[in-house]
Design a protein around this nucleic acid. Structure first.
Lengths: 139, 139
DNA sequence: CTACACCCTACAATCGCTGTAGGTTCAAGC
DNA sequence: GCTTGAACCTACAGCGATTGTAGGGTGTAG
């Protein structure tokens, strides 16, 4: 089974350009080409693309995914590195969740009263104008 | 009290370039200049900058903040618009939280076993390679 | 053989900054 | 008044991860 780039994109729920971009960045291998120069992919390419997309859905940076792919390519490689990458990603996600929950609270607070009146009495604008949010760390 | 751009940046916990960038984008007004061409700001500018930064901390896009600022500038403007912006921001944040919690779960699942062994037996890589994450909606 | 959907490359734009280069200005100390 | 040096100026490039555009070429079904 050989895929055109468009078929591969549909199969992995991605865009055509994204695949070409991964190729340019070295995450996807340069595939075979037809005589006319069009890319043709195989099953292995589809698996690799899904791996990348799944990693992206989990919030991994492309550099991290590249590292995980090279670990995957070498079955002898120690797992510790992959573990470290995933662990730091988990810590990152937990930080983001905590931060977003604080934002959620403050926004809820803004939205308590009815959305009537003029901006002079608007709580949304009042909150933004008067309170400083103290969130430690960066997003 | 007049501030240099550096003082303003420190007072609002921002960078100098960021202020110039907000000016370029029309969020901050063009301030007075010294004869030599350096910017000098007043208290109103500081309040405006803090408003912007607070909005950014809450995850509002600059376009949204621009809209909120123009509502703030007109005390007669109806509050409904501000309310809508904040409400859609809240929905967005709740979506992000749900999404990140799903990621957290999956990452935790990846990290259950000890980080020993080779990548052939690595759960992190196995999960990425084999499971499709079904998260509805975009981040 | 003709349509037409799909593919190609190359490059610009997005968002919200951050960093760099190369030069100018301001305020303090002498 | 003069020198120093930190802070300022403009202009532009770069980041990450795409997305969009322009201007063509290719592959396949009818």
């Amino acid at each position: 089974m050989r895929y055109t780039i468009g078929e591969l994109a549909r199969a992995a729920n991605t865009r055509v350009q994204t695949i070409r971009w991964y190729e340019q960045k070295g995450l996807m291998p340069c595939p075979e080409r037809t005589q006319g120069g069009q890319r043709r992919y195989d099953e292995a390419a589809l698996r690799r693309l899904k791996f990348i997309r799944h990693g992206r859905e989990l919030g991994f940076a492309l550099a991290d995914i590249a590292a995980l792919l090279s670990l995957q390519d070498d079955p002898q490689a120690p797992c510790r590195k992959a573990h470290e990458i995933a662990e730091s990603q988990l810590a990152d996600i937990r930080g983001k969740i905590a931060r977003l929950q604080a934002l959620e609270k403050e926004l809820q607070n803004m939205l308590c009263p009815r959305p009537d009146g003029t901006s002079a009495t608007c709580k949304v604008i009042e909150v933004l104008a008067n309170h400083a949010l103290c969130l430690h760390g960066r997003h």
